[in-house]
Write a protein that binds this DNA or RNA. Sequence first.
DNA 1: AATTGTGAAATTGTTCACAGCA
DNA 2: TGCTGTGAACAATTTCACAATT
Lengths: 212, 212
Amino acid sequence: MPKISDSTIRRLSMYYRSLSEFETKGYKTISSEHLAKTEKLTPAQVRKDLSFFGSFGTRGLGYKTRELKERIGKILGLDHIWNVALIGLGNVGSALVSYKEFQKQGFLIKLLFDNDQRKINKKHKGILVSDVKDLVEKLKNNKIEIVIIAVPTQAAQEVADLVVSAGVKTILNFAPTRIKVPQDVVVRFVNMAMELEHLSFCLSNQDFSVAT
Amino acid sequence: MPKISDSTIRRLSMYYRSLSEFETKGYKTISSEHLAKTEKLTPAQVRKDLSFFGSFGTRGLGYKTRELKERIGKILGLDHIWNVALIGLGNVGSALVSYKEFQKQGFLIKLLFDNDQRKINKKHKGILVSDVKDLVEKLKNNKIEIVIIAVPTQAAQEVADLVVSAGVKTILNFAPTRIKVPQDVVVRFVNMAMELEHLSFCLSNQDFSVAT
DNA sequence: AATTGTGAAATTGTTCACAGCA
DNA sequence: TGCTGTGAACAATTTCACAATT
């Protein structure tokens, strides 16, 4: 039972995307070298990442594109539908509801929540918006497995506490603040400003060489 | 001239945000231990990160909150305004235009581009939308330093090539595909689906312990 | 002949532990 | 005394290099 690093998981996502593209382009097989080149990695890195989960290729021949894609898909849990709820229908939240990639990968946004009476009980992109008051109950009843938090900073911790109390173990947090959760809950944090800051760092410190 | 790692830059952003909060809360000074605790890091990590750029604290006392915030802000290039252009006014693009954190940190979205005639020459959140046809010319004329690409996958590379040809050196890419650019151009890649995949990995592989 | 899978080596990143200073 | 700054120790990650396999 090895410990899988964040970076390996991230790269698996990248491989999955590349392999999907190669599949549509009609490539039947693919080598670690080819896969590595498209993602700017080394072939050894690709093989090492895969080796944590088994051996999926054939020596001398490479990997079957379709098979490897499916194996990685299974590792990433993309072989079935996940029930997702999204909290907060501001700018970011609204954009996420229509974000095509989510549906494509099997992330089904089943519930929407907001605390604005003007939005509650109306449909948003075909999904009824519920009151945050009913959050815990509805998360439980609908067997929600992943929650996306897209509320303002000040509300983030409060909402997170409710989500945790509903038994949800995985949270994607778009609020630009760290939220505190118990050990067994996984939070991924997306902060767009942080990425811009990275770029402005690069512009401001061209004397430092920066890893890419 | 040390080589600064991605993770150090990322943490500097986190310190900056924490320090801003501590400043508003009225903390005059702060120790590496306190700062570390709020970000779930070790005090040594905080001090090491800072040590790459100089020595900002006082032995026995800690750091002056305001001063450290400003020093880190300067390192991250947040001490002045950056001219930003955003290409693609779909769901993600529109959300980003209204994203408050950007303005707050000095990222000024000066230009918007789209290729949809219904959007061109109209105002979007107070900013006139230009035709992508005029991209190169306008990027140059307006001294744009950072470009945010929020166009569909198929258009991403084409747009990126134009951006590069206009001399822009830093790109934030929201299109769910890797774009190829010359060595001297820095691209940061934000893929929301990837973060959800990380969560679904965690749900699917609870036997693997995952780093947080 | 080509390419995987994988221990071992090299590199990078993190933490320790303590000297140095207010 | 308390806390920073940092070289040395340690841990994690990546790359190398080669045996194994088709």
